Amino acid sequence: MQRAKQRKKNVNVDAGSSTRKRRGKAIREPSPSPPASDEDMGNEDADVEVGSLGRIERKGILRGRKVIFKDVEVYNVKPLFLAFRWVNFLEIHCDSYPTLVKQFYANYRFDRDLKVFQSRVNNKTIHMTVQKFCEVVSLPTTGDEIYFWPGTMDDISACIDDPVAAYGELGCEGPPTDGSTNVSYNSLTPMCKVLHKILTSNITPRGGNADMVRPFEAFIMHRLLRGTPLHLGYILLRFMEDTRTKALASLPFGMLLTHVFNHEKLIQGGEERLSPATVFNAKTIKAMRLDIQGPAPPRRQPAQRFASQEFVAQELRAHRQHLDGHFTAVNQLLQSHHQEQLATQQALTGVRTEISTLRQDLGTAVTSLTEQLSSLTNLVHHLLPPDH
């Protein structure tokens, strides 16, 4: 029994090589490959050895959630993401491939100095710079490259001049003072609650309970409210690195990595796939117990809501006088136009009479001239000799 347990312990779940004995013979078996050197990280042609899935094999996939911005329009968060050019990323909606995602994370390495990552999926090496990654997944290539997940108050103080004011903008009374590093989600303003939900679904997903706001999440929300861009591609690749080193419960960015797999032509068909996750919409807001109509306006005092009869009578008299004045002015204007119309008609009648008289005089003159011309013609014929 003890030898059987020892043999089971020596068996590696993935690729590589190790040695164990069976019936007195040495047998070569897979074992994890050693990590590549820093020189290989900068070499696009260098092969990435297949690593051991280990705990990654048992992890779930966090696909991300498409944000339906029209359903959260009342909270005015879309302009914040538009300013950072993150909207396309938050609207990704496609299938995920769990097997490929797990291979990707099992072999993922990120060089912070060279800003290059490598991995290996389906026996093909993926080698990309941060800029190339951003181009593949349609992310901006600009912004401050700042990352300190999950972060401490020292990290916040190093990046923000006035942490107290920054947390105040989020709705908190200030940074945590009880020795902890997180603040409660319930202390956020309605807008920041929506922002935090979007962040924990797509940018800093970790699975499980998201009721606490980590310092790095508070920092991202502070930057969104201030309009100071961050380099999202750099943040995502660093978060992928922490997925391995900090043993997060799940593997993030399932739908995002589908774009990488399509670009590298790694999807061969027949792989296990997951349909897109539920979208972030009005139902999400309802589940968060936030009013889809937005924060309710403050209630008015009864004295302001119900006016006295005397006040109403005065307002009605004032409106009636105002309307009477307009009616009188309009009536006068109509009478003036009517008089002008009558004068115009009389003038037209006189013109018509004059034209008729001129026609008669012209006809008489034409008749008289015709008669005179005829008389002249007869006189000329009478005076001329017969031979002419």
Rank of each mutant, 00 (worst) to 15 (best):
M1L: 13
Q2P: 14
Q2N: 05
K8F: 10
N10H: 09
V13C: 10
S18H: 08
R22E: 13
R22Q: 12
K25L: 15
I27Y: 03
S33V: 12
P35Y: 01
D38M: 09
D38T: 05
D47Q: 12
E49S: 04
S52L: 12
G54Y: 14
E57I: 12
R63H: 11
R63A: 14
R63T: 10
K66D: 01
K66E: 12
V67E: 00
V67Q: 01
K70N: 14
K70M: 14
D71S: 02
D71T: 06
V72S: 00
V74H: 05
V77Q: 01
V77K: 02
P79M: 04
L80A: 04
F81A: 04
V87H: 00
F89I: 02
P98M: 10
V101P: 09
Q103K: 08
Y105E: 04
N107R: 09
Y108W: 07
L114K: 15
F117V: 02
T125E: 03
M128T: 00
T129N: 05
F133V: 11
C134Q: 05
E135I: 08
T142E: 13
Y147E: 02
F148H: 10
W149S: 10
G151H: 11
G151M: 09
A165M: 04
A165H: 08
T177M: 10
D178S: 07
C192P: 09
G207H: 06
D211S: 06
V213N: 00
R214M: 07
F216P: 01
L230N: 08
H231W: 01
L232Q: 07
I235R: 00
R238P: 00
F239T: 07
T243G: 14
K246I: 05
A247D: 15
F253I: 11
T258N: 03
F261A: 07
N262W: 01
L266G: 09
L266N: 10
Q268C: 13
G269T: 12
G270S: 06
L274D: 09
P295G: 06
A296Y: 07
R300L: 15
Q301E: 08
A303E: 15
A303C: 11
Q309W: 15
E310C: 08
A313H: 13
E315H: 05
H319F: 09
H319T: 15
R320D: 13
L323Q: 12
D324L: 06
G325N: 14
F327M: 13
V330Y: 06
V330I: 07
V330P: 01
Q341C: 06
Q345I: 15
L348Y: 03
T349Q: 11
V351G: 02
S356C: 03
T357L: 14
Q360I: 08
Q360V: 14
G363L: 10
A365Y: 09
S368F: 08
T370C: 13
T370F: 03
L373K: 10
S375T: 12
L376V: 07
N378Q: 15
V380T: 14
L383G: 01
L384I: 11
H388E: 08
